[in-house]
Amino acid sequence: MATTDRTWLNQDHQFLHGKELFRSERRFHPLAYTASHGQLLMRSVGRPDTPGEPETTIDLLFKPAAVVKIREDYRGLAIRCASEAESEQVKADYTTMAFARNDRVFVLESQGESDYVVAMAVGWIEGVLGRTQQGFFNDFYPEVPIWPTRPLYGVGAGLDIASAQELIDALVAADENDVIRRRRYRHVYVVMTRVIRPGRPDVTGAGVFLARADAEEAQAVIAAKSVAWMPVECWIEELPIAL
């Protein structure tokens, strides 16, 4: 994946009152929130300017988000640091909150209306998101050799977990006359990892994919993360699922 833009802002000198930090004419929507580190993720999936080029995704992350006032859809989005007066007013509206010194008020502007997020940092990544990748801010790490299944790491709502029936429907068309005996089967592709740790290897099933091409893409990403101080071996195993 070729990343075209990567920005992370968390230093005092980057947050002058009223300074514009981000602007895009694209459409954005809130995608995920995790209680772990108060992460709020917004995403835009747009078409490229050059015909034939892959579409790019923009992931926009606030962390940790203490207060959030946003809407479900933004048609064009600008983010700026609140003025001193705006910042004081927003924080005054939450008398029970104990704000930290570096809790900053970010104003989100779109189509003449404004919202806000109070957080310590904001950043964004734009690039071509791989078919098996859920987000730019939740990557594969050798220390935790499990393929990411959500756009953000941490405790989420679990709304993206598929049911057993959805899995069956994805593998084969439903056949009402073939539900008693498991006459059919399909293979799934399990990406396995072996992390070489001091004294012992750690073998884990990192992820299960319905298509070999997706498993191979994940395998390539994992292999690229192998480093000298923590080597990662990676391979694909085919396993049948009875239907």
Results as ranks from 00 to 15, higher is better:
Thr4Ile: 14
Thr4Lys: 10
Gln11Ser: 11
Asp12Leu: 06
Leu16Cys: 07
Ser24Asp: 08
Glu25Gly: 15
Arg26Lys: 15
Arg27Pro: 04
Pro30Arg: 04
Tyr33Gln: 04
Tyr33Cys: 01
His37Gln: 05
Leu40His: 10
Leu41Trp: 13
Arg43Met: 02
Ser44Glu: 02
Ser44Gln: 02
Val45Ile: 09
Gly46Thr: 07
Gly46Ile: 02
Arg47Gln: 10
Pro48Asp: 00
Asp49Arg: 11
Ile58Phe: 05
Leu60Asn: 11
Phe62Ala: 05
Asp73Ile: 13
Ile79Glu: 10
Arg80Gly: 05
Arg80Cys: 08
Cys81Pro: 02
Ala82Asn: 07
Tyr94Arg: 10
Tyr94Asp: 13
Thr96Arg: 02
Thr96Gly: 06
Phe99Glu: 08
Phe99Tyr: 10
Asn102Asp: 14
Asp103Ile: 07
Arg104Ser: 01
Phe106Ser: 01
Asp115Ser: 13
Tyr116Glu: 06
Met120Val: 09
Ala121Tyr: 04
Val122Asn: 01
Glu126Leu: 08
Gly130Ala: 15
Phe136Tyr: 05
Asp139Ser: 14
Pro145Phe: 00
Pro145Ser: 00
Pro148Glu: 02
Thr149Leu: 08
Arg150Cys: 14
Leu152Glu: 02
Gly154Leu: 04
Gly156Met: 06
Gly156Val: 10
Gly158Asp: 01
Ile161Ser: 12
Ala162Thr: 10
Glu166Asp: 12
Leu167Ile: 15
Ile168Lys: 12
Asp169Glu: 12
Leu171Pro: 10
Asp175Ala: 05
Asn177Ser: 13
Asn177Ala: 12
Arg183Met: 06
His187Tyr: 15
Val191Ile: 06
Met192Ala: 10
Arg194Met: 06
Gly199Glu: 12
Asp202Ser: 13
Val203Pro: 07
Gly205Lys: 11
Gly205Phe: 07
Gly207Ala: 03
Leu210Asn: 04
Arg212Gly: 04
Asp214Leu: 04
Ala215Thr: 02
Glu216Trp: 00
Glu217Trp: 07
Val221Asp: 13
Val221Glu: 15
Ala223Ser: 14
Ser226Ala: 08
Val227Asp: 06
Ala228Val: 11
Ala228Gln: 14
Met230Tyr: 07
Ile236Gly: 11
Ala242Asp: 13
